[in-house]
Write a protein that binds this DNA or RNA. Sequence first.
RNA 1: GGAGAGGUGGCUGAGUGGUCGAAAGCAGCGGUUUGCUAAACCGUCGUAGGCCUUUAAAGUCUACCGGGGGUUCGAAUCCCCCCCUCUCCGCCA
Length: 414
Amino acid sequence: MLDIRLIRTQPGQIRDLCKRRKSPVDFDAMLALDEQVRKLTTEMEELRRQRNEGGGAANREAMREAAVALRQKIGELEERLRVVREQRDHQWSMVPNFLAEDTPAGADDKDNVELTSWGEKPDAGVARKTHEVIGKTLGIIDEERGTKVSGSGYTYWVGDGARLAWGLYSLALDYLVQRGFRQMFTPVVTRERTLFGTGYLPFFRDQIYHLEGEDLNLIGTSEQTMVGYHMDETLAAQRLPLLYTSFSPCFRTEAGSYGKETRGMFRQHQFHKVEQIVFCTPETSDEWLEKTRENVEGLMRLLDIPYRVVRVCEGDMGAPGYKKYDVEGWFAGFGSYRETHSCTNLLDYQARRLNIKAKQDKTSFVPHTISSTMITDRALLAILENNQTADGSVMVPKALRPWVDGRDRIEPVV
RNA sequence: GGAGAGGUGGCUGAGUGGUCGAAAGCAGCGGUUUGCUAAACCGUCGUAGGCCUUUAAAGUCUACCGGGGGUUCGAAUCCCCCCCUCUCCGCCA
């Protein structure tokens, strides 16, 4: 959500922004609606003032008739105002965020720009299996039973697989806690208000699991509950930055993504993620975006997963994003890099929607938020594909060995 | 899930239809006094939005007493629905 006053004073700039970001907003209609809102507000407030003036017990008999008429007029205006304001707010809420100046042009992920890469990709000469085949051979991934119990898109991690996954999350959380992040466990369901505030609604409604008959939805990421944590609060500016991390399951319907990368566990209805969240001052959000990206890179190096960092282009970034990096891990079975992380600077877009403010002495401002993946179980899939050996076993990265009794490899089941 | 009580400004807490945005106290802020600390005294002290204004300030108006709706000339006060908190019972990790 952008500051409405900014939209009023810089309509040309924002109109161009909407166009560039292919926003469905009818910008000129929104401006007209906004003008109407203000006009009706002024009218209504004038009538209310008249009503308030006429109040008082002394002359109520004499005033009654006029007062009733006034009440009706006020009621009609209120109703009109409500309708117009709703229409304006609907358009307003879809106005996309600003774009960082150096955002690459482009339509989709093919236009993202590689910035750096790290790590030795495993020998490409060998025929490499994909993770679901490896996982089945090792007895650590059970897709059949996942489907039996919960339907397609749900999978069991079993035995050493579950232990490796657990290690992955522990390692990620410890890494962040050591760098000043406060660890949380959050609810995994949330109200619509939070989803709107974090910018998931109205844009991604079809991605969200809704609990029937309740104002509750399964979270798609703990970003929703961690950023929502401070909704309707005024933070003391000296407390910034606030650094949070949590592990949570994440639920996404993945409607419309059939056929795309659906093989194996790459795209699931439920996955697991450690997330980093930063609330900071507007002046420092650029820096914090880089720091969250560095945290990701540090962890990927610990896990010895080759990766590259790409700058996400304008067409591949959701409306709330201002600047976004994707980190893509190498998947030897697929023979390509695939998205394992995204780090996004949202500026004040979420904070404004969530009514989060910060206050320095007497002056208040809207803080910025950064949202970044730290690790998900997708990384484990990359490890399986990259670390497979000729005998069918998988080498365990050093950093994860403590979680499998110090063993350096997972052997096929016989 | 059942029964009861309750949600008022940063906090405590008055206020059951008429200038109530809301008493009082505490905390905060400014000042006076005072060896220091402290105390006393005086003043000040909410948020959001519209209008005005080059912006801001100032000014002015409107709204806000958990949220929404209703009754009324008029609602913090009356009625309905919802959310939340507390106590007791039941259930349970």
